[in-house]
Design a protein around this nucleic acid. Structure first.
Lengths: 210, 210
DNA sequence: ATTATTTTTAATCAAATGATTAAAAAATTT
DNA sequence: AAATTTTTTAATCATTTGATTAAAAATAAT
């Protein structure tokens, strides 16, 4: 009688439409600023369906958050400790991947930064098994490259802060930077494409001074 | 009869204590996530006093937001277009000022970035008179330095994104970067002090390649 | 076709939340 | 000291908000 049924949300299904609306809203505004009625309206469904499919606002948010975290980490951090090509070539690949991914999901970085700030220890626990091997591989490869003399000595934190900062900060700071430098949305898009080549060049200057 | 009285909030006054609590909470969690009762509890006052002194949660938030914006802009962007010393020396001064200011107010950058994202046009209007001269001065000085051959050609947006990104992103991305690089809070503080010298050096490498 | 199951809806609940009020307490003025 | 004004408190209001329920509609199974 209890059929252990597997819900496979078909494309365009109600469940999927709720999730998509929730992702748009939560990612842009965060948990507290989004009302369940906003999600219902945005997805064109009856309010009760949110609870029918996802039990509660919190559970729905948790799903979106995990997906966003995974997407961000897989799209950025993970790539840097993944394959075993040389650092310099890897940076080129990674920066391009970052910029493309974030261009398609501009609110992702600041959402992730906000979530990490208010770290619920539950999230930390879930992330640790993912982060640990990333950390190990990344530091190992960096240290090897430094020992081989391929790059100058640099603390892994500085390296990561520079790489991630130069690549994703422009998206986080977009409204501010546009206002300071007087750049339109179109110009911004062009500048981000430019940075695919510029950031690796700059990172290399930092890693190979003189 | 109507005495046109000027409220001068003395130090430690109720009004001031509410504002301080509100600033801590709003800056860290944003408008929607903070309840008026949280502010009352945090400042140890009766809930009604918040409305007595500030009329509404929104008005109190607006005050905090303007103060935060002003503090951030004055502590960062404004400095870069202020005096007329050479670019290189100015960068050194500015980076030190940034890092000290943000170390003392670690939640300020992400608060500002969040506010800029959800730009209420009212905020834009209020900021424009402040930003316009900053933009003009900043671009003028950059272009002059490029013409004099002091620095390589670079789009003002890239320059600003690099300078601000390398300086303040480590604070925004702190929880993530710590988790990736395995750095403690104490080490983080030390690394930020290191960056006072490193960031200007890196910026100079970018501006003067070869 | 009939029955059972799943999905959707409208109405409603209970708690949370921003705000107000009237009275008390404290401070200031006269 | 009495009167006036300012500040604080407890109680309460009205709305918002997350969630539930019971019934209707749609879909699938028999």
């Amino acid at each position: 009688m209890k059929a252990e049924k597997q819900k496979i949300p078909k494309d365009g299904s109600t469940e999927e439409r709720i999730k998509e609306a929730a992702k748009r809203l939560f990612t842009q505004k965060g948990f507290a600023a989004v009302k369940t009625r906003d999600i219902a309206e945005e997805s064109g469904i009856n309010l009760a369906l949110l609870n029918y499919y996802f039990r509660s606002k919190q559970r729905l948010f948790d799903i979106i958050m995990m997906e966003n975290m995974q997407q961000f980490i897989q799209g950025t951090i993970m790539k840097i400790s993944e394959s075993n090509i040389g650092i310099a070539e890897k940076i080129e690949t990674v920066v391009i991947a970052y910029i493309d991914m974030i261009t398609a999901n501009p609110y992702l970085p600041i959402f992730v930064m906000n979530q990490m700030q208010n770290v619920p220890s539950k999230l930390v626990e879930k992330m640790e098994p993912v982060m640990k091997p990333i950390r190990a591989n990344f530091i190992k490869q960096l240290e090897e490259a430094m020992e081989k003399g391929e790059i100058a000595k640099i603390h892994p934190f500085h390296f990561m802060a520079n790489l991630v900062g130069l690549t994703i900060f422009p998206f986080i700071g977009k409204p501010l930077l546009q206002r300071v430098s007087g750049v339109t949305n179109e110009e911004f898009a062009t500048l981000m494409q430019e940075r695919k080549k510029l950031v690796p060049k700059w990172i290399n200057m930092i890693l190979n001074p003189g």
